[in-house]
Design a protein around this nucleic acid. Structure first.
Lengths: 144, 144
DNA sequence: CATTAATCGGACAAAAATGTCCTTTATTTG
DNA sequence: CAAATAAAGGACATTTTTGTCCGATTAATG
């Protein structure tokens, strides 16, 4: 469904949000440790998220990554997915046809559109804050 | 969503079914031409489908691939997906966690399960025959 | 102002997915 | 039985994704 990069990206963003709720800024090393991901690869992904203004980065000692409380509400999952995987999840034919649309649909078109609409709605309506608070109260987990 | 191999596999299977409805047995070359896919790669995928008894192959002159009318009803999309991509679409965490389940869910678990259940239902309930007949009456397309 | 701690960014490496080529095997047909 | 045809299968090539390494840049702190 999502690429590895995107999986790490979402997990990292949720972890950063969780720590930001406590006013903590976190380093790549800590993030990779806590979400169980490869450090250098995670760093690349965080750069992407930072360039897309999804998370905020600070260089130098005491630096790291953080997310402002308001941004946790504004940032929805679809923004993270788009920043990392592009829009291939939302666009394009389920069977790989170049020109597949309502006028000239592939055999799976309608059924596929239904599924993808649901997925799209879910990603557009799920905020980082929502995911971070689930973690905070111990309902969900990020590791293993 | 699906791998390229799986996309080609589904398209090929639907095309074989369509031709089998007319009693025609088709070669890899014709299939690849008609579904616009790389020939040799398509041949590999057809081998997989054949080994999994999803399509029937016949060697030698006048040989090729075909699907019996009864099998078009019996073969559902999920069988093709499973034969080619395995069960990674059905199993495993949306965020890539190794142990993610109702007891120890990732932050996206519930929402992800919903989407995947829908996808799974769709694949399990869609037969090759259904897709082939849509093609036959000119409602859908397999190329471009 | 030197040291240190952190991200940034580019080059490289490894693994997986996609795709090609060529030989072997089975089968039909003249 | 020989020739031709088509799938089967193995080895190899290319591309994409995943992952690593290291020097450059930025900023805090003694």
């Amino acid at each position: 469904m999502f690429s590895k990069a995107c999986e790490y990206g979402i997990r990292a963003a949720v972890y950063i949000a969780l720590q930001s709720l406590d006013g903590r800024r976190v380093s790549v090393n800590e993030i990779a440790e806590e979400i169980d991901s490869p450090i250098a690869f995670t760093a690349k992904i965080l750069q992407q998220l930072s360039r897309n203004n999804i998370i905020h980065s600070v260089k130098g000692p005491t630096g790291g990554f953080q997310i402002a409380r308001e941004d946790m509400d504004a940032v929805k999952l679809n923004m993270i997915v788009k920043a990392i995987d592009g829009d291939k999840i939302y666009v394009g034919c389920g069977l790989g046809l170049k020109e597949c649309n309502a006028q000239k649909p592939c055999p799976l078109h309608d059924k596929f559109v239904d599924i993808r609409t649901d997925l799209s709605k879910m990603l557009k309506s799920t905020s980082l804050f929502e995911l971070a608070t689930g973690l905070e109260v111990g309902l969900t987990y990020l590791k293993r």
